[in-house]
């Protein structure tokens, strides 16, 4: 089996890279895919918390790279999905503990047995970002509908193009339909117009995300919530399904979508 490595990055911090990565992983896992998430944010790990796996970490990615354990020993199996794994970041080291070459080797090894490797990139454009995009077959850029996040996304897309890793795809996270309708928020079209890359995910603002994050149970397990449904749609698009971008409008054809998703 040869899987696909997808890196999720953004430039700006706090736009929801880790949330998107985890929920995309759950979405793909619910579709029966074998998925490994790698937390690339060495020194500031938190993917384990969002997945609710923090007290199971024995070995981390730096241990694997430095040969203190085998890859399999550092892979933590999810409580809910048997084919979803996390390779946690080290909390006591920094980004320079890993090289792009080591990341490429690691991902090649995982790809031979899994369908997807999802890498959660740290914020910024330094070493951690370079490590995260080196092994990528595909890159998703996450942004929020606000000018500073969009500006940073533009910079990141330029860097991805310069590395000849493009074309990247865009995920707009935390769109608030009420604010968009009032004209107080950048719309999907405003963002698209500036960044000019293909959209693959549109995630509405949903306070359930914060609740689920605190509980360590990703929102994608709750397919009825606004954001959960949007993440399931994202996973479906990653798998090549053509799903219209109507996450923002409402629940009109929700049943139909579910039928398409599981049918």
């Amino acid at each position: 089996m040869t899987g696909k490595t997808i890196t999720i990055t953004s430039g700006k911090g706090g736009v929801g890279k880790t949330t998107v990565t985890v929920n995309l992983a759950v979405g793909l896992g619910l579709r029966g895919k074998k998925v490994v998430c790698i937390d690339g944010d060495i020194g500031l790990r938190n993917m384990d918390v969002i997945l609710g796996l923090e007290n199971r970490i024995v070995y981390d990615i730096v241990d694997v790279v430095e040969g203190r354990c085998r890859l399999k020993q550092a892979m933590i199996r999810d409580k809910r999905l048997p084919d979803l794994f996390l390779v946690p970041a080290s909390q006591t080291r920094d980004k320079n503990s890993i090289t792009p070459e080591a990341m490429i080797r690691l991902c090649e090894e995982i790809k031979s047995e899994f369908d997807y490797v999802l890498i959660d990139s740290p914020a910024g454009i330094e070493q951690g970002f370079k490590n995260a995009i080196a092994p990528a077959d595909q890159i998703f850029v996450v942004t929020n509908p606000e000018v500073s996040a969009v500006r940073d996304a533009d910079r990141i897309i330029g860097l991805i193009e310069a590395e000849e890793k493009g074309p990247a795809s865009l995920i707009i996270n935390r769109i608030n339909s009420a604010m968009v309708n009032r004209g107080d928020m950048l719309t999907q079209n405003d963002v698209n117009e500036l960044l000019a890359i293909d959209l693959i995910g549109l995630i509405p603002e949903d306070e359930n995300v914060i609740i689920s994050t605190n509980k360590g149970s990703p929102i994608a397990f709750e397919g009825k919530s606004k954001a959960g449904r949007a993440f399931l749609n994202l996973a479906a698009r990653v798998e090549g399904d053509m799903i219209p971008f109507n996450e923002i409008e409402g629940k009109d054809n929700f049943l139909e979508k579910v039928r398409k998703l599981f049918g």
Partner: peptide, 8 residues
């Protein structure tokens, strides 16, 4: 012949 992005 392409968009010139931030930082370029």
């Amino acid at each position: 012949q392409k968009n010139v992005r931030s930082g370029i």
